[in-house]
Amino acid sequence: MTEKKRKGSLWETAKSILYGMAGHDMARFALKTRGSMEHLFILITMGDLLGVPILPPYYSLRLLPYVVPQISTWKRRMLRERDLTDALA
């Protein structure tokens, strides 16, 4: 697949998902969705870090090196964010 075609199809995807939004909002929405998926991804693969035993960890370990920087922020977010918002409310 050429780069141009790939971008083309992504544009199609983007248009269908983000139809009606302003460019700026679209970008924010896409990033936010991606961020949320990132958390889900780490939960599914590394869940036992938080005490949620989900899956056999053998292959999770292979992915671990790539998520090292995200782990502490993720852990914080997963465990604390709601309390912070509760507290500020």
Binding site: S36, H39, L40, L43, G47, L50, V52, R77, M78, E81, R82
Partner: peptide, 8 residues
Amino acid sequence: FLKYADIK
């Protein structure tokens, strides 16, 4: 957990 962590 998903609910708690606010993952939609």
